[in-house]
């Protein structure tokens, strides 16, 4: 009994060595919004639900039209592998509000944190060099060449944005890339980087494209100008470490009702990396542990052989 208790203790110490330090979090720098980051501002109070943005998104991204089993033509109910952008409506009695969903282009995205080979990456910050990618825009781009289709991005994304082509033998992950391919280098300012079709299509400027800093200022201006119109908050300024797509909602409407998850200020990526990296101490722990174990095991073996040699058996 005493032996097993001792071995249990020793076993626990050895086995737990790598994780025992979990509580003592290693500093992982919070990712700040990049100064040149671009994004969108969606104002639910201006949206009339015309869905012009949904159609123009499909055209701009050459996405096939969606069809339900009942044969309803191109009326998707959610984001899917044919739909990178969607307008939804929330209703409660007389009240209703429109909402828009697409990639939030997070400041510190979960999908980028979990992607094994950097298939999902911030523009210009991936694992491979891509011609024409400009660092600092913060647009989350997809590289099908390094994606293994593990779908961890779908688990990690709090907004359930990345979609998978379930019925393809050679499937892709599909998500909004802020129409970066529509950017025109000849133009000035943000339009040189990208040019989201949804923003171009919107007849009421319910969704506008620009630099995140400028959009944040614009959101604040609108809140200050007409405080009774809004619920007074800007979703995406801090939520989940901040997003590059910002939301305004009408008075009496919560962002949760518009389908946005309630997130803490620390990004999920930061929390996860902080906890998982802590015990590794920048790679020292595994090497030290390996060396120590190899030493002990070899010593045990020599002792064993010595006792065998002297014919003592065990």
């Amino acid at each position: 009994m005493s032996i097993s208790r001792r071995s249990l203790l020793k076993g626990a110490v050895v086995a737990g060595a790598a994780t025992a330090l979990v509580g003592r979090a290693e500093a992982r720098e919070e990712v700040e919004p990049r100064p040149d980051a671009v994004g969108m501002l969606y104002d639910s109070t201006r949206c009339i639900g015309c869905r012009a943005c949904v159609t123009r998104c499909k055209e701009a991204n050459s996405l096939p039209y969606d069809r339900t089993a009942e044969g309803i033509h191109d009326a998707p109910t959610d984001l899917n592998s044919n739909t990178k952008n969607i307008i939804k409506v929330w209703t409660a009695g007389e009240k209703s509000a429109f909402t828009k969903q697409q990639c939030m282009h997070c400041v510190d995205p979960s999908c980028v944190s979990v992607c094994m080979m950097g298939a999902l990456h911030k523009e210009g910050e991936g694992k491979r060099d891509f011609a024409g990618e400009k660092k600092g825009t913060g647009v989350v781009l997809y590289d099908k060449g390094t994606c293994v289709g593990c779908r961890y991005c779908q688990i990690a994304c709090a907004f359930n944005v990345p979609k998978f082509e379930w019925f393809e033998a050679f499937p892709l992950i599909v998500k909004c890339e802020l129409c970066r391919h529509r950017g025109d280098p000849k133009k000035e300012g943000p339009l040189a980087i990208a040019n989201p079709a949804c923003c171009e299509a919107c007849p009421r400027e319910a969704v506008v494209y620009g630099k995140r800093e400028a959009l944040l200022a614009e959101a604040k201006r609108r809140l200050a100008e007409d405080p009774k119109r809004y619920n007074g908050l800007i979703y995406g300024e801090k939520e989940g470490g901040g997003t590059q797509v910002l939301y305004l909602a009408g008075a009496g409407v919560t962002f949760k009702q518009l389908g946005m998850p309630e997130l803490p200020e620390e990004s999920s990526a930061s929390f996860s990396e902080r906890v998982s990296h802590a015990p590794y101490l920048h790679g020292i722990t595994p090497i030290a542990l390996y060396g120590a174990m190899a030493f002990v095991i070899r010593r045990n073996k020599s002792k064993e052989e010595a006792s065998e040699h002297h014919g003592e058996g065990k």
Partner: peptide, 26 residues
């Protein structure tokens, strides 16, 4: 069987491609 784009798995053999933040890579 579960991987959608299994043919790209060969990148796992290239350490410079590893995203060390990813628990799944580990």
């Amino acid at each position: 069987i579960a991987l959608g784009r299994y043919w790209n798995s060969y990148w796992l053999a290239v350490p410079t491609m590893w995203n060390l933040s990813s628990a799944l890579l580990e």
